[in-house]
Design a binder for these strands. Structure first.
Lengths: 332, 332
DNA sequence: ATTATTTATGACAGCGCTGTCACGAATTTG
DNA sequence: CAAATTCGTGACAGCGCTGTCATAAATAAT
């Protein structure tokens, strides 16, 4: 059906090995020969057969992004960054939801079909997943793991510092009772962000009040419900720090429902700086993490590992920043 | 490194062909033999090598979803539906952004790496893409094409009827000047939805006023700007029908900015029923299309085409419905 | 001009699997 | 009970490519 390397070879009057050389950019092909081969290939509309190449090379041009994360907007950004990198580097991105059907993930890694795997929270910290990947010798990279280690490279922002800075900002605004809506506890980032929050409180001589800390699930709905709980407190907070923007959006909605104006009566800030942050009203003050860049960088580090499996894993920390929009204000 | 069919064969004391039989569920393998093979395979942690199988079979277990669509929430739903179907059917989903780097898409289809391709708007109606796919003999399926044809199966809702019904609903509420914010004109769905809008107006004896129809880009920002234009009109509409929910959200934001209460002073309705619709305030009255089901069904029809390339393409029309939330009201 | 070195090309094996064919063993039939 | 049929298994080729090695041609060194 489709032309093979041998068809091109005989059309160009060279051996099929020479055609292989041309298509792999190998050295030592005379310019005239190269052109002959390229012309013949164009003529026959030839492309290398990936299955054959993968079989022979024991390689692959596929990178898997494993998801399960409840926050679609987070995934969207990561996926866009990864897809973009892949298309620039001769790879394609396979997206696999590990919650939907774990067996499918098993197959994926056992079959050796993937050149490498990108993990996002909470998979970045899931021991079963990490050991499955390790035992099958699949190169992988972790985005935002709780802590670095020697088994795989990672890309992150300094969540602890970012959460500390945002909390300090709220304290500087005069807030003394600051609610924290965390992500689920199996997310390393949740723990790191809570740690940053604690450190800031401690630095300001404020007491950590467990009542003010609620565990959400990174969803709009849990942002609402946690906010409801916080506002129902005998001494409700004057500021709420949600660990992602979806939950912050839910928090704002809950406040409005109760007739509590944001930011005049209540300050609400988020985390991530995804699309929703600039679109809701009021626009959200939030921690920006460069998710697309993080994903692209992760893919880059993954490729280094694929190329040289014994290289020491690199750990990149990308810069975060506080985006001060309109959902924060001084304590009133 | 990883065990092969031959390793399993010698461990089980059978020929490697028998191992192949077992792993392909072929008939005529004695139960005892099957068990021996399965035990040996488990022992060696064996899985079939996909590259070798694909080479030999001239097949693939990969389905590509081609995106470019500006509306992430639309894509999210389609992608989830497709991913889910894939994981249940032994396939994996490759997501490729055709805008980011068209060459990457070219490679993808030329290399024969994909068993099939799923197209969403506006690619479903893009003649270059359709002919590229056809000429490379890649099976594909179109989601929401403008019209059906014989070259590929398709899945859609009846956009024309849905838009007509929603417009009729607005007319029944007493609205006489109804703004329409369409999607870009290269989207077949945009044309179909506008047609439905026209038909409803005509059916009610209302005139089609080009001034009331604005072309957006399915984004929040264009929802805002088109709404601004409509509200600046000498005779502004009392209802606005946005062709997706993101634009409807933008429309609501623009109204609030101008102090126009929704739905008391202005009715705004959307299309798609994606996550944002139930989360904004007021919750959006919208047309629901079952995007996840559409994607799963598309994958299903695609598989039929992969299995039998000469079968007549099927065209499925899935049911839509009007979701009446709180962003509509009678003309005041 | 002769030898040493580099450069360009080809021959060939084989990656791990599936499809075809052949053949002996088990089962059915007359 | 012999002949016809079905079942279970193995031998083998080859999918399209890349890696290794050998060899011829071109170039540099003496």
């Amino acid at each position: 059906m489709s032309a093979t390397i041998k068809d091109v070879a005989s059309a160009a009057g060279v051996s099929f090995k020479t055609v292989s050389r041309v298509f792999n950019g190998e050295a030592n092909v005379r310019e005239a020969t190269r052109e002959k081969v390229e012309a013949a290939a164009r003529e026959l509309n030839f492309t290398l057969n990936t299955a054959a190449r993968n079989l022979r090379r024991r390689g692959s041009n596929l990178i898997a992004l494993i998801i399960s994360n409840p926050s679609r907007s987070y995934i969207d950004n990561i996926q866009i960054g990864a897809m973009d990198w892949c298309s620039r580097n001769g790879f394609h991105l396979v997206v696999e939801d590990i919650l939907a059907r774990p067996e499918s993930f098993e197959d994926l890694i056992k079959s050796g079909e993937m050149a490498g795997v990108i993990l996002i929270p909470p998979m970045s910290d899931d021991p079963d997943i990490l050991s499955a990947l390790t035992s099958h010798h699949i190169p992988f990279v972790r985005i935002a793991p709780e802590t670095d280690n020697d088994i795989a490279p990672s890309v992150r922002i300094d969540d602890r510092a970012a959460a500390r800075e945002m909390t300090q900002k709220l304290i500087a605004l005069g807030h003394r009772r600051i609610g924290l809506i965390t992500g689920p506890n199996n997310f390393g980032v949740s723990r790191n962000r809570r740690a940053g929050y604690s450190i800031a409180l401690q630095g300001a001589g404020l007491e950590y009040d467990a009542e003010l800390v609620r565990e959400g699930a990174f969803s709009y709905a849990t942002g609402q419900s946690c906010t409801a709980q916080l506002l129902d407190l005998a001494h409700p907070p004057t500021a709420i720090f949600a660990s992602n923007d979806d939950m912050a959006a839910g928090a704002i909605a809950e406040s409005y429902k109760r007739g509590i104006a944001v930011p005049h009566k209540l300050t609400i800030v988020g985390y991530d700086d995804v699309a929703v942050a600039s679109v809701i009203s009021p626009p959200l003050t939030t921690v920006r993490q460069p998710l697309k860049d993080m994903a692209a960088r992760a893919a880059e580090l993954l490729l280094e590992r694929i190329r040289d499996r014994d290289s020491a894993p690199k750990h990149d920390v990308l810069p975060h920043s506080l985006i001060l929009r309109a959902s924060h204000g001084p304590r009133t």
